[in-house]
């Protein structure tokens, strides 16, 4: 089952999930369930739940049946919320479990007790997250849509580290294209990542801070390439240069003291701008591939 639901992710991602503890997995689960749609989102959630089950050390004295029921309850409430919120999106309807057939309806008393147990687990996990990690672990604030805020665990995933890791972790859920530079010559650190939807598709914006100021990233995933809104870049007169890397055209230009990079790949428009030099821009472009 784990292999089945995680096969869309790399082995590295599976390793990352297995390297997390239950609290971190729970935080990730909350985060992923609130993200906009991406390919096999349901399968990914199922994968996290599977790993949570595997890793469960049963610290709260729950039986296996309780854990399975908790998992099913989460999945049911997630599906209900999702169908209410996104009536126009048809879920891929992944199986809850490949091994367990449909169960008869549970008795109300058992459901009630189970509900209490589930609430206790959620409360304990929440207290554990806040108490054990505090602000050191929960360092990335993601503003999803208007107003909702979730936290992502700061512990670095196992495997090769990425220069703009927080952004990379989000983008890799949506695309395997090389969109995030592997080099960070400005030593910028993540300040915020936000995602949103519009009629053209969806977007991911991230802001990083460095000694010189700000570095921003913006990726717009268009449903169709011919449906882009009008755009205008603010450019110093005559300071636009075309830079080629791996057969892709990158436009590097300056706006007063800042530098920007614009490029298009498949149905994604990409924009990096901020307080970095043209040389640093080229270094980031080269590190994409």
């Amino acid at each position: 089952m784990s292999e089945q639901v995680l096969d869309h992710r790399s082995a590295k991602e599976k390793e990352r999930l297995l390297g997390m503890n239950l609290d971190e997995l729970n935080a990730l689960l909350l985060q992923v369930s609130e993200l906009p749609e991406f390919a096999q989102k349901d399968a990914y959630i199922q994968g996290i739940l599977e790993v949570m089950q595997q890793k469960s050390e049963n610290p709260y004295g729950l039986t296996r049946e309780d854990i399975l029921a908790e998992r099913e309850d989460f999945w049911e409430s997630y599906c209900e919320l999702r169908s209410e919120a996104e009536a126009d999106i048809v879920p891929e309807s992944p199986p809850i479990s490949t091994s367990s057939p449909e169960k008869p309806k549970k008795k109300p008393m058992i459901r009630f007790l189970r509900g209490i147990a589930a609430a206790a687990v959620v409360a304990a996990l929440f207290c554990g997250i806040v108490g054990a990690f505090g602000s050191n672990v929960l360092h990335v604030v993601m503003r999803l849509g208007k107003g909702s805020v979730v936290f992502a665990p700061a512990e670095k995933p196992q495997g090769e580290p990425h220069a703009f890791e927080d952004l990379y972790n989000i983008l890799s859920l949506y695309s395997e294209l090389p969109l995030v530079p592997k080099e960070n010559p400005m030593d910028a650190t993540a300040s915020s990542v936000c995602t949103g939807k519009d009629i053209y598709g969806f977007y991911i914006d991230a802001t990083y801070l460095c000694e010189k100021g700000t570095v921003g990233f913006s990726y717009h995933f268009y449903e169709t390439a011919d449906q882009m809104p009008r755009a205008e870049c603010q450019v110093n007169e005559g300071e636009l240069q075309l830079y080629k890397a791996d057969g892709t055209s990158f436009y590097i230009f300056q706006n007063l003291g800042q530098t920007s990079i614009v490029w298009f790949v498949e149905n994604v428009s990409c924009f990096i701008w901020g307080d970095f030099s043209v040389e640093e821009a080229k270094q980031m472009v080269d590190s994409l591939y």
Binding site: E232, L240, W273
Partner: peptide
């Protein structure tokens, strides 16, 4: 499209 440089707007 290219606009004039700006201290406030990038795009």
């Amino acid at each position: 499209q290219q606009g004039r440089s700006s201290a406030y707007f990038s795009l």
